[in-house]
Amino acid sequence: CHSECLGNCSQPDDPTKCVACRNFYLDGRCVETCPPPYYHFQDWRCVNFSFCQDLHHKCKNSRRQGCHQYVIHNNKCIPECPSGYTMNSSNLLCTPCLGPCPKVCHLLEGEKTIDSVTSAQELRGCTVINGSLIINIRGGNNLAAELEANLGLIEEISGYLKIRRSYALVSLSFFRKLRLIRGETLEIGNYSFYALDNQNLRQLWDWSKHNLTITQGKLFFHYNPKLCLSEIHKMEEVSGTKGRQERNDIALKTNGDQASCENELLKFSYIRTSFDKILLRWEPYWPPDFRDLLGFMLFYKEAPYQNVTEFDGQDACGSNSWTVVDIDPPLRSNDPKSQNHPGWLMRGLKPWTQYAIFVKTLVTFSDERRTYGAKSDIIYVQTDATNPSVPLDPISVSNSSSQIILKWKPPSDPNGNITHYLVFWERQAEDSELFELDYCLKGLKLPSRTWSPPFESEDSQKHNQSEYEDSAGECCSCPKTDSQILKELEESSFRKTFEDYLHNVVFVPRKT
C-alpha cells in the first residue's frame, strides 16, 4: 500500500485506493498535508475557505447554543480562536489581540433580562453583547459592586439597553466600559436606550469621564423622579442622539420631579488639616426662599486615587461607600458681607490618608415646582503625618564578641513616609551569675543571650482551647457569634421535631 494509506488498500502504491488515510483526505486521495488554498479540518480532512465560511455563517444565523462559528488559524479551520487571539470578521482569520481579548457573548432569543446578581454573573467577562440587555433589578445585597464585577467589562451592545423598574439602582456607572450601543435591534418605538419607572436612579454616568455613542435609535425617559433633566440632556449631547427624540420621548413632568437638581456650584473657602482632623468651610448658599434650606450634607471617604465619582458603590438597598454628615444651616444675616460661612470639623480620621470630599445642599421643593440647590466639586484632601507606631517583631542576635545583629519589621501604621529608623542602645553591667558559677561542674549549661522565638506554653494553649472559665478566673470563653447562636437554635429545633416524629412513629394507638 501507499505510504499515506492506513489499515489496508485495494490497489498497491495508489493513494486513492486506501481504506483510511494516515494524515489527511483531499478529493478522494490521501495526502501528507493540505496544500494551499485548503485548510486542515478536524485533523483528517482538507477543506477550502468557502466550506469553513459556510459553517461560520450557519452557526451565526441559527443562534443555536453550542454550535461553533468556525475560524481560520495556522492553516486550520477550527471552532474558535485560541487564547490571546480574536477573529477578523472580513476573512475569519485569528489575529493577536492588542491588550485583553474581546469576548463576544451571543444571547438566546436576542435579549437577556438581568433581574438578579445570579443572572448578571452569566455575563461575567463579556466585552461584546450580541443582542439586547434588559435591566430589571428590584433589590439585593452589595448590588453596585456585584454588577460592576460582572457587567463592568461590557464595551458594546449590538441591540438596545433597557432599564425598567430597577428600584435598587442609583447610577449606571457599573457599566464602566460601555462605549457603544449599535441599535441594530430596537425596542418598540425605535428606541435604543429605554429608561422607565426607576424610582431611585439619580445618575446615568459621570459624563466628564465617560463617552457613549448610540449609532441608531432614540432615547426614552419616563417616570424617573430623581433623575434630573440636565442629566438626560447631557446624554443626548454626548451620545449623538440630540435631535432624534420626539416631543413625548422625554417626559418633562415625570423626570426629576422629586430630585434636588443642583444648578449652582458650592466653593470651599477654608481648608485646614491635622493628622486626624480636617476643618472645612464653604461659601454660604440661600435659595430664593431661605426657609427652603434644610441644611447641608457632607460626604467623605478614603480615596487612594483621584478618580472618585459621587455615586460609586451606591445602591438604593443601603450600600453606600460614603460617610454622610448632616449639618444645620448657619444663622442668616441681613448683611451679605457678614454672612457666616458654614463648615464642619471632621474628626477621627487616619493620618497621612487622602480623602475625597464634597458637600451639597438639602432643600425642600418650592411652590413653583422649581428645584434649587448647590453642590461642590469633589475635592481631595490629605491629612498630615504623625509619629508612626512601633516597629514590629524586633530580633537581636550576637554573632561574635563585638557585634549584635538587630532586625525588625516595619510598623503596622507608618502614618507617613518613613525615611529612617533611630536605634538606641545602652551598655549593661555583666551578670554576677557568670562569676559565681563553678565551671568545672559536669552538665553545666552556660547562660545564653542568643534570641529564641517566643512560644506559647501548654497552660496558655489549654486556656485558649477551654470553653469555660478556669477556677483562677484568668480566662473566659469568647462570646458566641450570631451565626453560632442561630445554628444552635436550628439544631435544637431539629432535635425537638425529630423526637416528636419518633414518638408518633414508635407509639401507635392500640386498636379498641
Results as ranks from 00 to 15, higher is better:
355 Y>F: 13
266 L>V: 03
370 R>P: 08
103 K>T: 04
198 N>D: 05
382 Q>P: 09
156 E>T: 07
385 A>M: 08
291 R>F: 00
307 N>L: 14
258 Q>M: 05
269 S>P: 00
394 P>L: 08
263 N>Y: 02
194 Y>M: 14
359 V>I: 12
248 N>L: 14
127 T>M: 15
166 S>G: 04
399 N>Y: 12
262 E>R: 01
276 D>R: 06
409 K>S: 07
255 N>L: 07
268 F>M: 09
290 F>R: 01
216 Q>K: 05
118 T>I: 01
150 N>G: 08
236 E>C: 11
205 W>V: 09
286 W>P: 00
261 C>Q: 02
175 F>P: 04
360 K>N: 03
249 D>A: 11
170 V>E: 10
391 P>E: 05
216 Q>E: 00
388 P>F: 02
228 C>I: 02
172 L>K: 02
159 G>T: 03
201 L>W: 10
371 T>P: 04
399 N>M: 14
164 R>F: 08
357 I>M: 02
267 K>E: 03
196 L>C: 07
300 Y>S: 13
280 L>C: 14
210 H>M: 08
163 I>K: 03
297 M>V: 04
301 K>N: 15
221 F>S: 08
271 I>M: 10
358 F>Y: 15
237 E>C: 15
136 N>T: 05
248 N>S: 10
113 T>S: 10
304 P>K: 14
193 F>W: 04
339 Q>V: 08
327 I>P: 03
143 L>R: 05
214 I>N: 03
245 Q>F: 06
212 L>T: 10
240 G>N: 04
298 L>E: 01
221 F>T: 08
206 D>N: 11
302 E>L: 10
331 L>Q: 14
344 W>R: 14
209 K>P: 13
149 A>V: 06
144 A>W: 10
135 I>M: 03
205 W>P: 04
231 E>M: 13
343 G>V: 06
221 F>N: 04
405 I>G: 07
191 Y>L: 10
181 I>V: 12
373 G>E: 07
305 Y>W: 14
397 V>H: 15
189 G>S: 12
116 S>G: 09
199 Q>L: 06
409 K>P: 10
399 N>G: 14
106 H>A: 06
155 E>F: 02
154 I>L: 13
136 N>R: 06
378 I>E: 01
181 I>L: 11
220 F>G: 15
224 N>R: 02
227 L>T: 13
107 L>S: 11
136 N>Q: 04
128 V>A: 10
332 R>T: 11
155 E>S: 10
201 L>V: 09
150 N>W: 11
364 T>I: 01
201 L>N: 01
342 P>C: 05
301 K>Q: 02
351 P>K: 06
203 Q>V: 10
107 L>G: 08
163 I>M: 11
132 S>R: 01
195 A>H: 07
384 D>H: 09
375 K>Y: 00
401 S>H: 06
291 R>D: 01
363 V>D: 04
299 F>A: 14
343 G>N: 14
316 A>Y: 15
371 T>G: 01
311 F>H: 06
255 N>R: 04
338 S>H: 09
334 N>E: 15
386 T>F: 08
322 W>G: 15
115 D>A: 14
123 L>D: 01
282 W>A: 05
231 E>L: 10
393 D>S: 14
206 D>W: 09
217 G>D: 06
361 T>L: 00
368 E>P: 05
271 I>L: 08
222 H>K: 00
215 T>R: 13
184 E>D: 14
309 T>Q: 14
291 R>K: 02
362 L>H: 12
160 Y>H: 12
403 Q>I: 08
209 K>C: 08
161 L>F: 10
200 N>V: 14
147 L>M: 11
246 E>Q: 14
267 K>H: 10
160 Y>M: 14
382 Q>N: 12
334 N>F: 13
234 K>H: 08
253 K>Q: 13
346 M>G: 14
335 D>H: 09
313 G>K: 15
338 S>W: 13
362 L>A: 03
292 D>H: 04
404 I>V: 14
271 I>S: 09
161 L>H: 01
407 K>M: 11
216 Q>T: 14
181 I>Y: 01
341 H>Y: 12
190 N>G: 13
176 R>W: 09
377 D>Q: 11
174 F>T: 06
260 S>P: 04
217 G>L: 01
301 K>G: 04
368 E>F: 09
131 G>I: 01
381 V>C: 04
207 W>V: 12
151 L>N: 02
215 T>F: 06
316 A>V: 11
387 N>S: 05
217 G>M: 03
345 L>C: 05
222 H>W: 06
127 T>A: 12
188 I>M: 06
244 R>I: 07
136 N>A: 05
324 V>M: 07
112 K>L: 02
177 K>D: 15
302 E>P: 10
215 T>C: 11
133 L>N: 01
342 P>S: 05
362 L>V: 07
353 T>A: 08
228 C>V: 03
206 D>Q: 12
282 W>I: 03
132 S>D: 03
137 I>L: 00
263 N>H: 06
357 I>C: 15
332 R>Q: 14
150 N>P: 06
300 Y>K: 06
296 F>C: 01
218 K>C: 15
243 G>R: 12
309 T>F: 14
263 N>G: 10
397 V>R: 14
383 T>L: 02
214 I>T: 03
133 L>T: 03
228 C>Y: 03
142 N>S: 15
107 L>E: 10
160 Y>I: 12
303 A>S: 07
